[in-house]
Amino acid sequence: MTGPLRPAFHEGQVLAAADLSATVEYARGGAARHARHLHEWGIVEGLGLVTQPRTDPLTGVRHVEVSVAAGIAVDGTGREVVVAEPVVLRESDFEEVNGADQSTDEPYPVFLTAADREPAQPAGPVSCSGSATKTRVEESYQILFGRLGDERLAAEQQPPAIGDPPADPPVRWLVLLGYVHWADGHFSGVETAARGVAARFAGVRADTVSARSGALTLRTGTETQEGEPALVLTGGETPNLVFGLYQGGGAVAPLMTVAANGNLTIEGSFGGRMSAGSTLVTSGTATDGMLLPLPSGVTPEQVADGRVVIHVHLTPRIPPLADSALFSPVEATVDADRRVRCRVRVYNPSVNWKQPVEQPGAVDFLVLATVAATNGGG
């Protein structure tokens, strides 16, 4: 198997159409392999589904007009798909694919795929032979509606071989843009995700990311927005790692900071998995029938599978009594579900001198959650 062929020229060579086409294809193939292997395919910029409210002039039904915003995507073959201006989705195209479906609240997927077309106007002069063959190809696109569940097709697509150029039509690669709702013969809304599948955005494959300014920032949006999270790694004289939230001026208010010496500073509380040999405690007051809480950071699953052992201590509380009344606990227990069983007996001769009264009581509780230490003590 040969590698990519790079065109080479010499003085006096007669250049055929194939020679010039090979020059274009060599550069195009290199760009596609770069996009395919150094990046994750998906939406690069724009291409969101945008709605505008409308009213059907015949029926008075309110609906929305859906358009695809201008933008760029790179498909899984490395081909760039450019939508130069907004495109209004045609309801007739949707009905052609899904018009026979029963009415449903489920959204339908919308895909973008590459398409080659001949330009509307010839570019450049006609050849000396008088041939009317066009000398340009418009790298265009096609917007397709899928059936319910077709969003899975995007994830099942397989990339071409390592050295292949970008795929040209009729080979089709689907880029999911989002979903549309359909009701009463019109579009009624849009979604970015449905049935666990969301519109896919382009990413990068890298083992090393370096910053020239001495600070590297990761954030969840293309623009800084107040209240959104950010992760900032800084070098220089005071290197540290900061996780925080953006403030109004674009600065990051630290919530957690790791200094160069390993010191960790956090603004909130700390919780997480219990380490071997550790103990967590919670306490309070509970009445008969209440479930005792677990210490913060302990889950019922950890208790159920034996990773954490629970110890409970109960102390019956003396209820408010008259001076002549007597009190004695009858039961103060907790069952396997951590439900308190507390009964007390109160004898008040001024109310009923014949016999005491049994009633629900309250307890002070102490719940300890422990993890056994290993043989090494850690």
Score class of each variant (00 low, 15 high):
T2L: 01
G3Q: 07
P4Y: 05
R6D: 01
A8S: 14
L15G: 05
A27N: 10
G29E: 14
R33V: 04
G42F: 05
I43C: 13
L47Q: 10
T51W: 00
S67P: 04
V68N: 07
V68F: 07
A70V: 02
G71W: 04
G76Q: 14
E80K: 10
V83H: 01
A84H: 10
E85Y: 11
V87C: 02
V88S: 10
E91H: 07
S92Y: 11
D93V: 12
E95C: 06
V97Q: 00
V97P: 01
G99C: 02
D101K: 08
V110M: 09
A115Y: 04
R117D: 12
P122T: 05
S127D: 15
K134D: 13
K134Y: 13
K134N: 12
K134P: 12
S140I: 00
Y141H: 00
Q142T: 01
I143G: 04
I143M: 03
L144W: 02
L144D: 08
F145K: 11
P159R: 08
P159N: 03
P159Y: 07
P160V: 09
A161H: 13
G163H: 00
P165E: 02
D168W: 01
P169W: 05
P170H: 08
P170I: 06
L176I: 13
H186F: 09
H186T: 01
F187E: 10
E191R: 04
A194C: 11
A198Y: 02
A199V: 05
T208K: 08
T208N: 06
L216V: 04
L218M: 07
R219P: 05
E228A: 15
E228C: 11
L231M: 05
G236K: 04
G236D: 04
T238L: 06
P239N: 07
F243H: 10
Y246R: 13
G250Y: 06
P254S: 08
M256Q: 10
V258I: 14
A260D: 15
N263H: 05
I266Y: 08
E267A: 14
S269M: 06
F270Y: 06
G271C: 07
L280I: 02
L280G: 12
G289V: 00
V298P: 03
E301P: 00
E301V: 14
Q302D: 13
R307W: 13
H311Q: 12
H313T: 11
L314T: 03
T315Q: 14
P329D: 10
D335I: 01
V340T: 02
R341S: 14
V346L: 12
P349M: 06
V351Y: 05
V363P: 05
A369K: 05
T370P: 04
A372C: 03
